[in-house]
Write a protein that binds this DNA or RNA. Structure first.
Lengths: 108, 108
DNA sequence: AGCATATTCAACCAAATGGTTCACTGTCGA
DNA sequence: TCGACAGTGAACCATTTGGTTGAATATGCT
């Protein structure tokens, strides 16, 4: 049961993919634009996006020749729920989160 | 940066390891006892425990010939913090969590 | 029509993962 | 001292992962 949880955590285990999610937090993006800040090939980014998609963390909608990537934050809920029991974390205010984002974004 | 986050999420991506964490939520356990409910070899469980240990999710203390495994819930905090920003999850009450636990534990 | 842009496909590679079996090292109990 | 128990190490295997390059497929622009 819960193969989703496998996929979600596996997707989050890669720093490139976490950085992509952080970028999508700002706005929807085309695949090419997602790839821009990274050194790796567009193909590699495409694969990462597929993994994020299969995990339900993003959705992709093709409009014309560009495919738009959109964050789907609900998919994180199951993972978040799973973790809640392991210590009673109160929700964090934005400050702490922003610090984490900065630490995660590629080449600052 | 944040190699810990990589390790924590990677560790959580395996259902066997999540089940182990759930078991350790109840109480500290010896390696052999951790392995008991699973069909896989003791060696495999030992490897899983190593991965959990490297991620900081558990600690292991050898006392005599038995090695005790202890949950370290603090390690989940960084992961939890990371996720907080992606949708404002209010903390979940125990009901939802218990349902997840039941879905995760091996052979009910 | 013809070219450039956006994205994926296919084939390949090195390294990591999750599992196995068998042998080994300690430690406890009789 | 000897045997049983707790756990790790080493070698192996199949599969997945994260990356590459080069070709293919659409779509849009002029």
């Amino acid at each position: 049961m819960a193969p989703t949880l496998d996929l979600v955590f596996a997707a989050l285990a890669d720093p490139t993919r976490r950085a992509i999610l952080s970028m999508l937090l700002e706005d929807d993006m085309a695949v090419t634009d997602v790839a821009a800040p990274f050194e790796i090939s567009l193909t590699a980014i495409s694969k990462h996006l597929n993994i994020l998609g299969r995990a339900g963390l993003i959705s992709q909608e093709r409009r014309g020749r560009v495919k738009w990537c959109k964050l789907e934050p609900d998919a994180l809920k199951s993972a978040s729920v799973w973790m809640q029991g392991f210590g009673q974390f109160e929700p964090i205010h934005l400050d702490a989160f922003e610090r984490f984002l900065k630490a995660e974004l590629p080449e600052t």
